[in-house]
């Protein structure tokens, strides 16, 4: 299968050099070619696995449990100002 590696890389928000793309292209084709054997399995009417034990998502009581740890949680950020995450300008 031919894959437009640069297009997929843009979906995943990863910059790839042409050299990287040239290496990854055949590798991805190889992996997806292997995975294609799934097409031979008869899955007519088979329900997809949503959870390994078919468990439903549990609900918790609607009470406040989190404490305010803003400072600690923001500490690992590359750039913070006045408690806000700073990123390059988004809108011109």
């Amino acid at each position: 299968m031919d894959i437009d590696v640069q297009k997929v890389a843009m979906l995943a928000r990863i910059r790839l050099t042409d050299a990287e793309a040239n290496e990854l292209g055949p590798q991805l084709s190889n992996i997806l070619g292997y995975v294609d054997q799934l097409q031979e399995v008869d899955t007519e009417g088979v329900v997809e696995t949503a959870h390994p034990h078919d468990a439903a998502m549990p609900l918790r009581a609607d009470v406040v449990t989190n404490t305010n740890r803003r400072e600690a949680l923001q500490k690992p950020a590359p750039k913070i100002e006045s408690g806000l995450y700073v990123v390059p300008k988004v809108i011109e």
Binding site: L32, V35, L38, Q39, V41, T43, V46, V47, E48, T49, A50, P52
Partner: peptide, 14 residues
């Protein structure tokens, strides 16, 4: 073709 199919085959493996 990929994700949905794989989750179906996963059911068969289980």
């Amino acid at each position: 073709a990929y994700y949905k199919k794989a989750q179906q085959v996963r059911t068969l493996i289980r």
